[in-house]
Design a protein around this nucleic acid. Structure first.
Lengths: 278, 278
DNA sequence: GAACATATGGCACTGAGTACCCTCTGTAAA
DNA sequence: TTTACAGAGGGTACTCAGTGCCATATGTTC
């Protein structure tokens, strides 16, 4: 997509945010419809100096969030935000491509983490890998419980933010599906299975996330996600126990129902043999 | 959500579209962020006269779509649309709450159909019911193949339309999940399973839909969806085939030595299953 | 010191969407 | 018949998000 070539998101080592910093010479047509999450490129380190100057992106995000909580998202204008932050209006759009982006400043990094995680997953059991990857997202939320809970309440009430969040979730889903697709490349209906499993993982994760958010961020986030993902793991990996319990020279006896789809049988065989091998 | 109380969508018996017709006295604050699909209320019949006057909504939708194809979505303004349709600018927003809505004029009705279908499903097998419900969506697309294919190409290129479509898809998913939730009310993890299965069904459907759209709308849409949904049906309904295709409940017992090469095992499994199936 | 990149501010502009007010027409009640 | 009212449509001015362009610092490098 053209957007990705126009939008540089680099990580600020001071504020920890992945900063939206368009090169002025590169910006041509950066028009981005509302509700669309920007698709950032690979990360680069910020080449900032060692003086901890005021991190404008953080200041803007905090001003924006405070105002959204105070008077609501829609009744807060960008002018209000920059007035509170004490900067020029134009600067806001240098750091956030849209008003919605100021509410979700950390998904870009999380998505990059997920991509890196899956790249490093090697030939691990694919469904297990994407389930593990889903934990990264929950951990991002759990790292800032109060913020996450407040944002959840805000998002529930503002249709524009819900829509924006959908596009964010979709990016995670696509990332998981892309990984599964390469792992199941050549398998019958590999792409189909990849998308179905990715959607199931995301749905399970989001169910656990919402439950956790509704407890006010006080329950055990990781346990909630793992419980939810167990549904997916059991169904799509044949309900195997995770680690090698068998040893010795036994043979594998696999029982499958007659109507079971071939790919599922193959998957079970594969995972059983993989377990045996190490 | 407040929107649903402000947006009346009634079906026009002339043009067949579900028309967006706000009561002037009811409209208070109808502000709807871009990219958000309107959540319509239950349908009502239009009380239009029997004179087949020019159905403005259809005229607008056709003008809009033609212009979107000609010069692109973003380079078409609402002023362009109403100029081509020969009506006032204000009228556009009486029929479509946003520019995006003019591209998806038929989802409201389809969603209502799906809701009605599930209400009538009674105590049918729940996963089967939602799979059948998914067919309704595909049939809506298949009813106008050229339009669907053109819109698909348009949607792929316009981020704003993709985001809008996400919110539409989400409404289907929520409808399916709500049905499953009531059916599995009280069951352990009923809500979780409902959301996971709904997401899987939607993902499978969309995979088939995209495949069909990429063939130019010429392949067998229903068969494609059914093939994709088979993945979900088999996994989530205990592997039962939908109708009386299988008889007997035999199982296959496969025994393999631990050191056997994977390809050989797969080969044997495949041939065994193929033999059994016919 | 010249050339250049980066950060920020300012201003004018486009275009979606809204509020408010107007007219016209058909229908039902007085 | 007249009156009242609701619905359909038009028009105008407004708000606000987002963009393009330009100006101005402040380094940084050659």
């Amino acid at each position: 997509m053209a957007l990705s070539t126009l939008c540089k998101c680099i990580e600020c080592h001071i504020c920890g945010f992945r900063c939206y910093v368009p090169r002025m010479t590169e910006v041509r047509r950066r028009r981005k419809p509302a509700g669309e999450a920007p698709e950032s490129e690979a990360s680069q380190d910020a080449s900032a100096g060692d003086v901890p100057k005021a991190p404008m992106r953080e200041v803007l995000a905090e001003s924006a969030f405070a105002l959204f909580l105070e008077r609501g998202f829609e009744r807060t204008t960008v002018d209000d935000i920059v007035a509170r932050a004490g900067v020029g209006r134009r600067s806001f759009f240098r750091y956030f491509p849209s008003k919605e982006d100021a509410v979700f400043p950390d998904h870009d990094r999380c998505l990059a983490d997920m991509t890196a995680f899956l790249e490093a997953a090697g030939d691990a059991e694919p469904v297990g890998a994407v389930c593990d990857a889903a934990h990264l997202v929950m951990r991002m939320y759990a790292a800032k419980p109060e913020f996450s809970v407040q944002r959840y309440r805000l998002t529930r009430e503002v249709p524009g933010l819900r829509t924006y969040e959908l596009s964010v979730v979709r990016r995670y889903e696509r990332t998981l599906a892309a990984y599964l697709r390469t792992r199941w490349n050549g398998a019958p209906d590999g792409a189909l299975r990849a998308e179905v499993v990715a959607a199931a993982v995301v749905a399970a994760h989001n169910n656990a996330l919402r439950t956790w958010l509704r407890t006010g961020g006080e329950s055990d986030a990781d346990a909630a996600v793992e419980h939810a993902l167990a549904t997916v793991r059991e169904v799509w990996t044949g309900g195997r126990a995770p680690a090698g319990e068998t040893d010795g020279d036994e043979v594998i006896v696999m029982v499958a129902r007659k109507g079971a789809p071939l790919w599922r049988v193959v998957q079970q065989v594969e995972s059983a043999l993989t377990d045996e091998r190490d």
